[in-house]
Write a protein that binds this DNA or RNA. Sequence first.
DNA 1: TTGTAGGCGTTATCAA
DNA 2: TTGATAACGCCTACAA
Lengths: 344, 344
Amino acid sequence: MTQSDDPSGAGRKRNQRGVTMEAVGRIAGVSQVTVSRALSDPSKVSPQTMARIRDAIAVTGFVPNALAGALVSRKSMMVSALVPSITNIIYASMLAPFSSELKSRGYQILLSETGLDPDEEAAVVEAHLSRRPDAIWLTGVHHAARTRRMLIGASIPVVETWDMTETPIDLCVGFSHAASGRAVAEFAREAGYTKGAGISAGDERAQRRLGAFASRFRELSGCNIPVVTASYGSIAAGRAMLAELLDRRGFSGGLVACSSDVLAQGVLIEAAARGIAVPTDLAVVGFGDQELAETVEPGLTTIRVNRDAMGRIAAQALLARIGGETPPRDVIDVGFTLIRRASA
Amino acid sequence: MTQSDDPSGAGRKRNQRGVTMEAVGRIAGVSQVTVSRALSDPSKVSPQTMARIRDAIAVTGFVPNALAGALVSRKSMMVSALVPSITNIIYASMLAPFSSELKSRGYQILLSETGLDPDEEAAVVEAHLSRRPDAIWLTGVHHAARTRRMLIGASIPVVETWDMTETPIDLCVGFSHAASGRAVAEFAREAGYTKGAGISAGDERAQRRLGAFASRFRELSGCNIPVVTASYGSIAAGRAMLAELLDRRGFSGGLVACSSDVLAQGVLIEAAARGIAVPTDLAVVGFGDQELAETVEPGLTTIRVNRDAMGRIAAQALLARIGGETPPRDVIDVGFTLIRRASA
DNA sequence: TTGTAGGCGTTATCAA
DNA sequence: TTGATAACGCCTACAA
């Protein structure tokens, strides 16, 4: 019923040359340059000319070719954003304010997923650099040597986010994962928990958080605690890891720190299934402060990172750099907050 | 501690002309064209020449300028993706397979959020078209007239997703929101629910689902049911809307259909707070089959849409079009499934 | 206020 | 197998 007259199919795209400023100018009775000027700065063109050009644009449906513009002006008005995964709300929620901030200044986002492998990231970086973005957002601070080299060679502003380093490629806007892990350990002690355990996802940042938690916990309490690692941070993994701790690692109660709220939710569900009372018999701390942390029962004590601010500040820092400013600090720590709810 | 020697700041970006094929060729002792050929089709260049060029590229850190290439070849190797919101997992989870499918064929994603307003979308479409993408993904099938005009004028493959139409701009890969609403009503009747109510978010597609649910429910049962609308689909809104139904709309039990799983979760929470038993005193159906639908207690009966397949199929359809193929069907309905769990 | 000339860094088309 | 030459569509001088 829909394919019979095919309004859009076979006949389309026949070497169409597209409308150019040249063509618009011809119709408006001016030269190509005048059209260009009319678009970039209307005040440099007489009102009558402007009107004729406007009409010609309307008639032809002219849309300027930004590729050509970028080639000669050396400004692509694109900013690259590289994140491990778009479906992870952690990254998406930084990206949203980042992109909206840039959009309001006329920039567009060239987005790619990199996964968590530095070599894959390097390949993506190269592909992006070939598009000549005016700046680039990277997630994390551990990159392949080749990535650093390419980025420095490209001479564009770079912001590394969602982590902290003293030697950024250019700019860094983030927080310390180790410090957040230590903060959980310190909270545990202050709240009176003398026993503990850790559940981590397999990625490097998660392990860094949990490693810092465990070693700080040991410093404060004098005893080692078990840390188990799941390859991926799912609810099922959280349940399985708690079972592992209880059934095979001799863990029998205390505070369990998790590398993400999703894992923590799994722990809560497994605890409920086993009739273990939270927080009296088992205390749970997550990471991320996702929406679920607030709605889960009992409410999840967790670490909140201001992702909106991070996205926005990163965008502003890049814009400043693009504008030639030398920022007062090239490393900005947005910190984190421990949100105490009922689970610990 | 980090800003003293400023390795990346002020000195950078000094009218750098960047390495070109010309420069690489000079070092390798060949012309610029030969470098171009070496990169696009190594078999057309002698092995020795190839080796010298490779060395020259390594030495200079040359990264080809895809803008220039796109300008002359009329292939940007970019595909635009326009979604209402990146942080909404619904859209993000379609985007991920879409972009990974395209990436494997050398395309990159130019991403923008459009919100839910057709005029805002039109502005975004224009900005994207100026970058000359080789194809474009739109979310939904209701667009401003100007959007349709621009898109048709651009003569590039367009896929409209996450909805259904008999008159697509070009291609459509999606499902029928109305049919999904009717399916919930039919399920309700078959399961023996004689009373019902609806809770919808304010956006047009959500209202279409709930409208279809209500009218089909009326057809089947002969009685009108109340439908309340929240501006935005949050847990808090779900709680508030159930309260509204119970306290002010004379609803006293039966099946509540929600336009999203998040709203449904709010309903479950409010019901629990009021001591209303689910599903015995109140049955709840969501939409989307997010992860929470499975983990919430009781498990949420909901509508599942295969978002992964949609993203992938949309990508494949666009790739086929780019390759000049005329697809057998320009409208593909991926359908949906009602997943029955404990809540209804 | 408007126009002319010259290039931006590639790919396409010939010719050698 | 390689190279010269001509675009691609626009912006940046500079000139009128």
